[in-house]
């Protein structure tokens, strides 16, 4: 045990997870359920996006209610570039990340002057502005959105149109982002960020540039969400203003809280659990939302620190 702020990776656990995710689609193909590969890709993309939001909510104490704006701008960047004839993923995806980062710089610049509930609402305000701005832009399809001609081109040998290869690309992006976030959280910036979350006044008194630290985290999260948006646009083949709707921001927040804010895998677990519950219940009943609501309520009452927190609690109790 190094320090309270250190987030350990547990190599064995990570390796097992990686192997499982690598062979999962082959297993699905073996039992002839290729549809679930698309669902799994969707979960990976949302796991990436929710993890980026978790950096803000869980590690920075910044409850952003406007994360869908960054996802949306990333998705629209890819779609717009594709319309302009730029299909290379190596060009379009970094530009999508850049777009997310620049938007986050703008929004964070102003929003981070407020805190608490007012921060929640001001991020929502900016996301709503982005939402209505996209709708008013005829160039980007307005209400209807844009449909992508195809998927981005990655390498000559890899055809992203195949769901299997897209799954592995999504997996690679998710794994890289998670590894990056893990490094970041344990690096100086990440430690300082957690310090600001716990006691901003004290960090300020110690001479840390707290505003700049929070802004840096905000920009990083925006860039990762932009990447998630780029993947999402490729996955669905369609971008529409609904990507930026506040209910999307809400769903992302729910994923983070559900999985466990401030847990490395919190966002990923939340995304997987929420999307899987939805999928399963949808098969059983048209009233699946009722089921989702009851499950969420039960989780919040019995596992206040999220599923990842609940699991860690169980493990500690067993060890004690």
């Amino acid at each position: 045990m190094t320090s309270a702020l250190h987030v350990s990776a547990r190599p064995g656990f990570a390796l097992a997870g990686a192997i499982l995710l690598l062979v999962l689609p082959l297993g699905l193909l073996a039992v002839d359920q290729p549809f679930y590969i698309v669902l799994a890709s969707r979960i990976l993309v949302f796991a990436l996006i929710a993890s980026s939001l978790n950096l803000l909510i869980g590690y920075g104490g910044m409850i952003s209610f406007g994360h869908a704006a960054f996802v949306g701008i990333g998705a629209y960047t890819v779609a717009g570039l594709m319309q302009a004839g730029i299909v290379s993923a190596w060009l379009a995806w970094p530009i999508a990340m850049l777009a997310g980062a620049v938007l986050a710089l703008g929004i964070g610049w102003i929003s981070l002057r407020t805190s608490g509930v007012y921060f929640i609402m001001i991020t929502l305000a900016f996301a709503q502005m982005a939402y209505y701005a996209i709708i008013s832009l005829k160039l980007l399809g307005g209400d209807d959105g844009l449909s992508l001609g195809g998927r981005s081109a990655l390498l000559p040998g890899i055809d992203l149109k195949a769901d299997l290869s897209f799954y592995y690309v999504a997996l690679a992006c998710f794994a890289a982002s998670l590894a990056f976030l893990h490094r970041l959280i344990n690096a100086e910036l990440g430690r300082a960020l957690q310090g600001v979350r716990d006691n901003e006044t004290r960090m300020e008194a110690l001479g840390f540039p707290t505003y700049r630290i929070k802004l840096a985290a905000f920009i990083i999260a925006g860039a990762l969400a932009g990447l998630g948006g780029a993947l999402l646009a490729n996955l669905t083949g369609l971008v529409s203003p609904s990507l930026l709707h506040w209910t999307q921001s809400g769903a992302l927040m729910i994923m983070v809280i559900l999985g466990g804010a401030g847990r490395l895998l919190g966002g990923a677990i939340g995304a997987a659990v929420l999307l899987i519950i939805e999928e399963v219940l949808r098969d059983y009943t048209i009233h699946w939302q009722l089921g989702v609501g009851v499950v969420l309520l039960a989780i919040v009452l019995f596992a206040p620190s999220g599923l990842a927190g609940g699991l860690a609690g169980l493990r500690q109790r067993r060890q004690a």
Binding site: I57, I63, V117, G250, M253, I254, I257, L258, A261, H287, Q289, L290, V292, G293, V294, V295, L296, L297, I299, V300, L301, P304
Partner: peptide
Amino acid sequence: HLNQVLATFALILIANETVRM
């Protein structure tokens, strides 16, 4: 606040679906 958001969001889903039923 995060817990409250999650719990009351769950209530929205429950209320919407109950009304629909």
